[in-house]
Computed example of a mutant assay.
Amino acid sequence: MATTKWAVDPTHSEVQFKVKHLMISTVTGYFGKFNVEVETEEDDFTKASQILFTADVDSISTNNEQRDTHLKSADFFDAASHDQVKYEGKSFEKVGEGEYKLHGDLTIRGTTKPVTVNVEYGGIVVDPYGQTKAGFTVTGKVNRKDFGLTWNAVTEAGSVVVSDEIKLNCEIQLVKQA
């Protein structure tokens, strides 16, 4: 079988995370610069030999410059020493119609842990420019403390400032490479 290479279409993709702030509201953040590379057998993603996602920590944005600077500091991602977040997919398992589990290893701040995310496969289409594209919605949760992101503070009332659970939501469109 022929190997097919896929690359991210950055103009039709986004990588988002959500975290509870003060345990009463949710802050949304994005990675503005990221890459996805996939190698499959033909167009069968369940037979992927490579699924690699990387995000540039310095591209993090929560629409608040002071918070973004804090997230890039040693209190959180430590961008000076660990400039990328990396997810290496190990297997893409079908669990229902258009529903999959992606099992892999997530590396943040030099710590690697197994993480499984849910994937909704939107299908493959040829766009008006003749490019073959595949679409995916990826969701999941991680505990930030598992990756050494342990900073927190407590309010006067005893609430924590930042929750441990981080929700992930990515919209990924891949382009088949010639």
Rank of each mutant, 00 (worst) to 15 (best):
L102A: 01
I51Q: 01
A2D: 09
Y100P: 00
E65H: 09
G122H: 06
F17S: 03
S159N: 13
Q16V: 15
A2M: 07
E88Q: 14
D164W: 04
K113V: 15
K133R: 14
E120Q: 15
D146C: 15
Q84A: 15
T46C: 10
F45S: 01
T4L: 03
F77P: 00
H103I: 06
G130S: 08
E37F: 06
T26N: 13
Y30K: 13
V138T: 02
S25H: 11
E37L: 06
D127H: 08
V138A: 02
K20F: 10
D78N: 13
K113Q: 15
I51D: 01
N35Q: 13
R109C: 07
Q131P: 02
C170A: 15
S61R: 08
E171P: 08
T40V: 11
K72D: 05
K176P: 00
L106I: 07
H12A: 08
A79W: 06
G89W: 00
V160N: 07
K47Y: 11
P10S: 11
K72P: 07
I124P: 02
F17H: 05
G32V: 02
D146T: 12
T155E: 03
D105H: 06
K167P: 01
F76I: 08
A48Y: 05
A55G: 09
G123T: 02
Y100W: 08
V27D: 09
G32N: 13
S59K: 07
S163A: 15
E14K: 13
P10E: 11
E88F: 05
D43H: 04
